[in-house]
Design a protein around this nucleic acid. Structure first.
Length: 196
DNA sequence: TAGAGGATTGAT
DNA sequence: TCAATCCTCTAC
């Protein structure tokens, strides 16, 4: 399998990319250990709405990688506890991104279990803060290219349109009206999706 | 330079 | 329901 091409990430419609990422495979090679998982839940963020760190084209030290060309990782610390993994999309200067919220473990399951200090495979990647830990993603990978580093996305399984559920995004009440945008996508009846 | 708060999680 | 935990942003 090969990483998805740059053109996939440079599309101008971040919502479409978020939907297309369902069923793709996220792969990391951290500390010499390969781990991967099927993407089963995503959320879209755009500089045009308040839920986004780069709302109104506001660039800061933290979110500046969002303004790079699509195809890089945006990893940041949330609540002082969790690393959250985003995929930067669109062209340079158009700060859009997709947050990966849940995975279905595929490879390196033992490595993930060891990182999570648990014996239960269930729910170890069902949440944005958990999947980064399971796959060994942290802020060192902020700005890393998904085309040529130890972090990339491959084609996975084909998803039918009627398997995709559309919902409101989680945890962004502060965004006002924009928190009602139906920009969260997940696979219907998939046990690996994060719980609300 | 101090203070507030967050795209979450797991324990109580 | 609530604390953990720390980096980032904003205001002074």
């Amino acid at each position: 399998m090969k990483p998805l091409p740059a053109s996939f990430y440079e599309h101008k419609d971040v919502v479409r990319i978020a939907r297309d990422l369902l069923g793709k495979t996220l792969v990391t090679l951290t500390d010499g250990k390969l781990t991967s998982g099927l993407i089963v839940e995503t959320e879209a963020y755009s500089y045009r709405e308040r839920g986004c760190h780069a709302y109104n084209n506001k660039m800061t030290e933290r979110n500046k990688v969002m303004f790079e060309q699509g195809g890089v990782a945006y990893v940041y610390l949330c609540y002082g506890v969790h690393n959250l993994f985003n995929i930067v999309t669109n062209k340079a200067g158009q700060a859009d991104a997709v947050l990966v919220r849940a995975l279905q473990p595929l490879k390196g399951e033992e490595t993930m279990l060891a990182r999570m200090k648990t014996n239960s495979l269930k729910r170890i990647t069902s949440g944005p803060g958990k999947l980064t830990k399971a796959l060994g993603i942290d802020r060192k990978l902020n700005g890393a290219s998904l085309l040529k580093s130890d972090l990339w996305i491959e084609n996975g399984v084909k998803i039918n349109k009627n398997e995709i559920v559309t919902a409101f995004r989680i945890g962004i009440d502060y965004a006002g009206e924009d928190s009602k945008l139906p920009w969260r996508f997940y696979l219907k009846d998939n046990v690996w999706v994060s719980k609300e």
